[in-house]
Every structure is written in C-alpha cells, then in structure tokens.
Design a protein around this nucleic acid. Structure first.
Lengths: 189, 189
DNA sequence: GAATTAGGTCACCAGGTCAG
DNA sequence: CTGACCTGGTGACCTAATTC
C-alpha cells in the first residue's frame, strides 16, 4: 500500500557521525560539544559517551573535585575534573537503563520536531519582543549562551522515548535541549 | 460490506502496531514491553521478535551469562544478557513451530477474552481484599494513583494467550505480568 | 478481501580499539 | 585516560505470504 518511505522530515544523521535535526546540530547535554547520537538516554558526544561507559563499566571512584564540586562542564574543560564530569553525566540523565536501541520511532521524531518548532517560536519571542521580563527563558537562554556556572540543573530528567509518557514533562526536557541548540546554531551564523 | 464485524468484541490492532485487547495493551511475554503482535507463538514486542528470529535463523550460540544464568528480562535490561534473553524466549514458549499466520480464529479470541476476564477478576480480588499481606501487589496498587495522562500506554493490562498450555495457570501468569509492567511504568515515571 | 505475521531492511547504538 | 572509528548487534517499519 504505502510506497512512501515516509520518514519524519527533519532528522538526519550525517556520515560524519553528527546528529542533526532540521539542519541543526544537536549538542551534547553534558558538555555542549556536538552530539554523535543518543547515548545512555541522552544526546551526547563521543567523548562523554566513552567517559560514561568507562565510568560505569569499572565502577570508577574518581578523585574528589579540587574545587566546590560544581565545576561547569564544557567542551574545553571537560577533562579537568572527572568527578564533576561524571556527576554531570548522571544529572543530565545518563544511565544504562535509559539506552534506546534501534531506529528512532517515527512519532518520537515527530514529537521532537513539533517541540522544536514551538521552542523556537518561544525563543524568538523572548528574544525580540521581551527579553527583559521573562526570567524563565532568560535563564535558559543564558545557560547556553554563556556556560557560566550552571551546576546541576534540577532536572534529573531522562528522555523517555517511551511511547507516551507524560507529554508535558518530556516536552520541557526537549524544549530545554532545543533552546540550547537553537541558540548556538544562531550564534554560529 | 459486512457491518457486522461480529468478531469477538475487544480485540483490535492500532495502526501503530500495538496489539490491544479491550482497550488494554498486550505485553511482551518475554520482556514486558508493549507487544506488537503474536510472534512465534507468543505475544511479543518487536525487539524480542527480532531477537528470537535472529537467534534461530543463524543458530547462534550466545556467550555464557556472566551471572547465574537467571537474569530477569525486562525492557530496560533485555539487551544485557543474550543468553538469558534467549532462554526466556524459549521458556515462555517461543518456537518456530508455534507460529500462527493470518487472521486470528474467532474461537481463539473468544478464549482470550475469557481468560482475560478471569485474570482480571483474580487481580482485582487480590488487590482489594488482601493487599496488605501481599507485598508484591503493593507496587501495583500505587500505580493506580499515577496520573492518568495517557492514551494508550502506561496502562494496566495483561497479556494472555498460551495456545496450548494449561489454562489454569494462565491467570497467575497474567498477574505476574501486570505486576512487572506496572513496576516498569513506575520506574519510567 | 481483510486481518495479521515472518522476514527483510537499515537507521541507530553499546562496546571495543588504539593512536594521541 | 580520552575520544574518533569500527563492529556486531537492536528494533521500528515495510511488504509478501498466509489464514479466516
């Protein structure tokens, strides 16, 4: 019947191992680097993926952080503090239980696309019309823009690719992700 | 134009590939995930179906289990031990000889419905009359309090079929299954 | 002819590797 | 130790085949 290979428009995976969505690069939720895919339940780069794998495989106990145990983890400095990096991995939801194998379900893609668009719109609004009053969004916005001291974000969220888990919570999650991504894509331009 | 579909009331198959019965989602008998149909003689999800197919096609000898060869197989961890997963497939009755092709015979549906109802009743009983002594069921009880936001997922339901096994044990089975699924839904949330 | 599944496909990922 | 690459799966979808 359906000859249409019909896939959700938007999501692609370049040959270089970079995951894109509607032409925009997805970012590692741990360090902000370019994500290579959905690893252990979150979008992550090869580095953080490998780091997390090693960490859980051999139940490594990392040396205590030399600072306040809340180092910001970014691409540039992600290797400076293992303890904090691992903590960040966990806080963004990386877990062996969250792995998702196989092809991305069409409806999940669809959902991402939608959430992405709405997030995009939201961002545009807050950016152009009233970026002085909306604290929530500015919060998010900054978080990505200047990776300042964003510590453990109170979001132990874990992406439930699961068919229909609460639509609201997952959308929050995705929104956050999208915002970061969009912001960056924006800056790059 | 037979308007009288007249088949057994209840069984449907959504377009998403999820098998339902009286509005309840059927679960994979191997891992508890949502079943996509009756595969190799058992209600199974796409994952376990594919896994079993591959296993028997190329007579794969899986690596020995790293634990006690009795890993519990659930959606979250089903990929961690192939040997145990395959064993579970066999133990729940998956077999190339058990395939049922084509449309579901009416009497089979009828039978399912009946077994389902009795299983349901059993469950209800143990839930209301004596849920203080039965610790396993407490889990289940909580689930009821969960937000009912959903359309076709975290839903109490069970899975039943066993073409040629003792019909009496079927309700026990269902109960167990429900518990597992509920636990999962719980974890997911 | 409609319902329903075995198998094939191939988008995607966990783990292993090994230069750097 | 880190992370770019490779390999061996995994499972969402699709279609041909099969039964009612």
């Amino acid at each position: 019947m359906k000859t249409s290979k019909s896939s959700v428009p938007g999501m692609t995976k370049s040959h270089s191992g970079v995951t894109k969505f509607s032409g925009m690069v997805l970012l590692c939720k741990v360090c902000g680097d370019v994500a290579s895919g959905f690893h252990y339940g979150v979008h992550a780069c090869e580095g953080c993926k490998g780091f997390f794998r090693r960490s859980i495989q051999q139940n490594i106990q990392y040396k205590k952080c030399l600072k306040n145990e809340n180092c910001s983890i970014m691409r540039m400095n992600r290797n400076r503090c293992q303890q904090c990096r691992f903590k960040k991995c966990l806080s963004v939801g990386m877990s062996r239980d969250a792995v998702r194998f196989g092809r991305i379900p069409k409806r999940e893609k669809q959902r991402m696309l939608i959430e992405m668009q709405s997030a995009m719109k939201t961002m545009m609004n807050s950016q152009f019309s009233s970026h002085l009053q909306n604290d929530t969004l500015i919060e998010h916005h900054e978080q990505t823009a200047l990776p300042a001291q964003e510590q453990l974000r109170p979001k132990p969220q874990l992406e439930q690719e699961n068919i229909k888990s609460s639509p609201s919570s997952s959308s929050d999650f995705a929104k956050e992700e999208v915002i970061g991504m969009v912001t960056r894509a924006h800056k790059d331009t």
